[in-house]
């Protein structure tokens, strides 16, 4: 309870400081909006459905792009982990590619796919694919051999073995990578949407800039933070929690 109190205190202090600075009118309101101005922009955005639509569009892209990169990343990761040749060649390439900010894929994507959904999906996938692949690869390597031996012993073969044994057994090792992949995908998506116009939260943010509407800019920023935080706090936390319950604390943490 005391923790909740500290949270409330901290955030009300932050809000109060913001309100006071805004009230002093050191900067004009279109550069430094008031908290209630941002609140109004938020309210208005939801009331005219533009925020809802943007959230829907962005989330759909996230689910598609992230889902795709998880599937691809797992296939790639397992392949790299199981094959010495691939590990030395593709494995090294993956690590070096990770130093490329994902938004750098956008020009290429636009040239290939034009200003389409495919281009933005491409950027999202490239943003998260590498971290999923790398975590899958390391997870696969850390995985004790006993599980796949026991699985084969009990009659699991091929894809069955992967689906029922290898994948669940490596979950505690890869959940961190999956989470990181989500965060990367989220960043890539918003930056992608900011650069090329087509609905979505990123575009809403740029629209705020074009209209010189700082309140809307801040409202959308808050929305982006909140969404990212919600997914992390609810989806991934609950996966981690479930893993801990099943495996016992030691293995999953």
């Amino acid at each position: 309870m005391e923790r909740a109190l500290r949270y409330v205190l901290f955030y009300s202090a932050l809000l109060a400081a913001w309100a006071i600075v805004a009230k002093l009118k050191i900067w004009p309101p279109y550069l430094f909006p008031t908290p209630w101005g941002v609140g109004e922009a938020m309210w208005a955005g939801f009331m005219d459905h533009s925020f809802w639509i943007a959230i829907g569009v962005s989330m759909k892209r996230m689910l598609l792009g992230y889902g795709l990169s998880v599937v691809l990343g797992m296939i790639l990761g397992v392949g790299v982990a199981n094959n010495k040749f691939l590990e030395e060649t593709v494995g090294g390439l993956l690590v070096s590619l990770q130093s490329l900010p994902s938004i750098c894929w956008l020009p290429m994507a636009v040239l290939w796919f034009g200003l389409t959904e495919k281009a933005i999906l491409f950027v999202v996938v490239m943003g998260s694919l590498l971290s999923v692949t790398i975590s899958m690869e390391t997870g696969r390597k850390q995985l004790p051999k006993i599980y796949s031996m026991a699985g084969r012993n009990l009659g699991a073969r091929g894809f069955q073995l992967f689906w029922h044994v290898t994948l669940p057994a490596s979950l505690p090792y890869i959940v961190t990578g999956l989470k990181q992949g989500w965060a990367f995908a989220w960043r890539s998506l918003i930056s992608g949407e900011m650069i090329f116009v087509s609905l979505g939260l990123g575009q809403l943010l740029m629209m705020g800039r074009d209209l010189n509407d700082m309140s809307q800019v801040l409202a959308v920023m808050l929305l982006i933070i909140a969404l990212g935080y919600l997914v992390d706090g609810f989806v991934f936390k609950s996966i981690e929690k479930r893993l801990q319950q099943k495996w016992g604390l030691a293995a999953a943490s």
């Binding site: 006993i146 599980y147 031996m149 044994v165 669940p168 057994a169 099943k246 495996w247 016992g248």
Partner: peptide, 8 residues
């Protein structure tokens, strides 16, 4: 070492 599956 048994090899029981901890996720099940």
């Amino acid at each position: 070492e048994l090899g029981l599956f901890p996720w099940l």
